[in-house]
Design a protein around this nucleic acid. Sequence first.
DNA 1: TTGACATGATACCTTTTGGTATTATAAAAA
DNA 2: TTTTTATAATACCAAAAGGTATCATGTCAA
Lengths: 112, 112
Amino acid sequence: MIQVQAQETDLQGAFRALSDPSRRQILLHLSRREMTIGEVAAHFQMTRAAVKKHLTVLEEGRLISVHVRGRERVNRIEPAGLAPVADWLAYFDRFWDQRLDALKDAVETDPR
Amino acid sequence: MIQVQAQETDLQGAFRALSDPSRRQILLHLSRREMTIGEVAAHFQMTRAAVKKHLTVLEEGRLISVHVRGRERVNRIEPAGLAPVADWLAYFDRFWDQRLDALKDAVETDPR
DNA sequence: TTGACATGATACCTTTTGGTATTATAAAAA
DNA sequence: TTTTTATAATACCAAAAGGTATCATGTCAA
């Protein structure tokens, strides 16, 4: 039960983090290389403070990890954090398939 | 360019719709069978009006379609609407793999 | 040590969001 | 036709979200 709740939390945190375009953009940047807050902010027009807030949300969603290096904070993507989201989506694959199967059946048994 | 924008719109609409737990729950209900607003609302404590707002957001994200049947409105899941989200996630699969490959290499070339 | 610099922390503002309550419509049923 | 009933539409509210500005802090470098 505790695990279930933790999973739901991860799921919500991840979905929440992904719901903002700027945060998805940040993830794409970080997929190229890990970056400090300043480096990430250089790609946007908003202030460093705003970028930092987005990074916090991404960290809460476990989509990135933050590593202190001297006075810098290096942000690194954590692809594993996307797993709960991918898993949730996977549930609906069967409806995809189901619909495709129904279509296939309809074609094969078409009485024309 | 128009297509790109349309895709981005779809992506944002879908991610937006999925960011709320109630809306994800609604999708799960609708994956069992199509339902009217009232039927969906019966599964929740919030008012019909609130459920209807959620359904509107889901429709805007193209995750459901709505079909008028007399004075009822039947809500049907549209699994295809999840495709943009799945595609977006798929981009990160390579980083997943990359990291696994790096781990594999590290193990295989371990000088111990 | 001192100054520059990367970041943290707060406070504040505006817009969006998730929700309720209320009233209006339109279709189905009595 | 009258009355339910399923939904639409609107107004409203509190909280959250996304953003800025400002000031504090800790670290690097001269």
